[in-house]
Design a protein around this nucleic acid. Sequence first.
DNA 1: ACCGCTTGCTAAACCCTTTTAGCAAGGCCA
DNA 2: TGGCCTTGCTAAAAGGGTTTAGCAAGCGGT
Lengths: 342, 342
Amino acid sequence: MPNKRVTLADVARRAGLSTAAASMILNGRTDTRLSAEAHARVNDAAAELGYRPNVAARGLRTRKTLTIGFISDVVATTRFASGLIQGALDAARKAGHVLLVLETGGEPARESEAIEAVLDRQVDGIIFGVMRARELFVPDIPPATNVVMLNASNKKHPVSVLPDELSGGRAAVRLLADAGHRNGIALIGHNKEVEKNLFRSATVGQRIAGIRTEMAERGLRFAAEESCWDWEPQHGYDVTLSLLKERRDIRALLCMNDRLAFGAYQALADRGLSVPHDVSVVSFDNDELASYLRPGLTTVALPHEAMGRASIELLLDHNRRPDQHLIPMPIIERGSIHPPAD
Amino acid sequence: MPNKRVTLADVARRAGLSTAAASMILNGRTDTRLSAEAHARVNDAAAELGYRPNVAARGLRTRKTLTIGFISDVVATTRFASGLIQGALDAARKAGHVLLVLETGGEPARESEAIEAVLDRQVDGIIFGVMRARELFVPDIPPATNVVMLNASNKKHPVSVLPDELSGGRAAVRLLADAGHRNGIALIGHNKEVEKNLFRSATVGQRIAGIRTEMAERGLRFAAEESCWDWEPQHGYDVTLSLLKERRDIRALLCMNDRLAFGAYQALADRGLSVPHDVSVVSFDNDELASYLRPGLTTVALPHEAMGRASIELLLDHNRRPDQHLIPMPIIERGSIHPPAD
DNA sequence: ACCGCTTGCTAAACCCTTTTAGCAAGGCCA
DNA sequence: TGGCCTTGCTAAAAGGGTTTAGCAAGCGGT
């Protein structure tokens, strides 16, 4: 292994040509009039020396670095973020790009820092991922920058990727309705504040809207709506338990996410009710948890990877629509839905 | 916002000095003899124009890009990987560096690709993370490259970061012993193959070794050892259930990871046994699951973030030991251990 | 014998920054 | 008056590539 990296000049020297010729040949330019022999000599030299171009040097001239900045507020806290990153990494790799990943914790100061850091490195574009619901997002990015919003939308940067929560919400209701549930359906985790305040989480608003639309279209009504502020297992447990103490007619639970459903499972077990024979459960996200539960939880999945992938593809696609791109939410059928007993 | 990025030449022009002067002043060089007035003019100009140096151009000259390649086999599949990345991102940010994150899926071809991709971008060093146990790891990296192995060790790259599994294994036993358990302790997930074959997973071998050492030193013996190949909830459920059917004297479960423990919880519930009053449970990893269980699972945590952080700090530390660096595994006490009833 | 067109290639500028070598002016000393 | 040392700065090269402008040689036509 040579001590120094092989440069274009090395290749040109070995081929007995100028760096200009070598550059044009290696870049496959067709408008060049260089002889077939020159092509062969340069290609051979490059292969023999194991030449690899220096991306930074090239970028200096061409303003293309084959590098994309992926800035998100949170990376590790939720599996959601990793799925997005995973999809983005893979799509980027396939397009010959590489990702500069930064995390901001949602703090505006760090967001600005992150944007500067990636711009300093001449990225070809920025994916801005938002995992936590947030009021608004405003850091200044130079107008010429190629930006895609991931899981968020923003007026200044119209190209965005979002899960198709409206259809997803409808799908969840459809799953229960198709199994024959018409009465005794409870909504777990409905949250009036969120429903009203689209800034807090645009996507969850759509989820609820889809649920309500589909219920209405089928002439169905919830037997109960249990509201809670946070959507952690503990809350699912608490509200479900208190619901079950009051009501004996609950036959299905529509949970706003899998963690609530997880808590609901525990509450159902505590009350001696079996899933799905006594009570069906359906929820959202396809959290890792959902497959661990017994029986497996039927859920409407957040399409993490597809979204991550889409964000990269959009970023690199020059004639994309400057618009929201909705990614379908797959239905993951496991064993938590069953026709009502009575 | 100006259309073009501000360059050093712009700053120099506005300050009425040469780019050389501007460069030296902005880099805070003291061996320079430039007047105080020149300093002031340059600094003012830079501030007024909002100058930010072009990292790529600078790197061309200095061979430092303030960028680190983080190559791992898997990023999203396990929470483990995200924790590592999270720690690494944060440490890198604090050191003014940025991470180029690549994923290889553990395929050698993609590993080589990834290494080339980051070297092409002149990274200051490479962190090589291995999440899945693998036989060995051998892609060729130029010898001068600054490499830190994360969660793996390798002869060619001696600097590595690993969890202190030996102490962790001992700690788990200690937790049970200190609560008064001496008999009826079962080991769930012991795996003879792994124990023998350190290539498959060096860290798990240490975990077992720690457990066995501490047991021996305290004169304790396992009442049962349930082996299984994979460590998913389903397996924990299966082996625990069959164990409980055979034996009525089990008072504590030492599970090899939290997912097994999760399955074990379900099996215990099926048998009408309560955690921790009938049976104590302790395990490893501090998976997200552990906090969702009821009662919370006491576990010896994998120090994801600390490891990710350490890997960066080591990479940037020029006089580090060329050696394994062991990161302590914190004990997370929740509610799953209780003194035995009898 | 000269013009003009192709063909095949190279010199040099350019991207942005750092760094080395050295210039010009002023002061001091002899 | 000349030589030497500081002081304060700049020109230019270097780093690795891309791109533009244009040179030289060969050839066909008149």
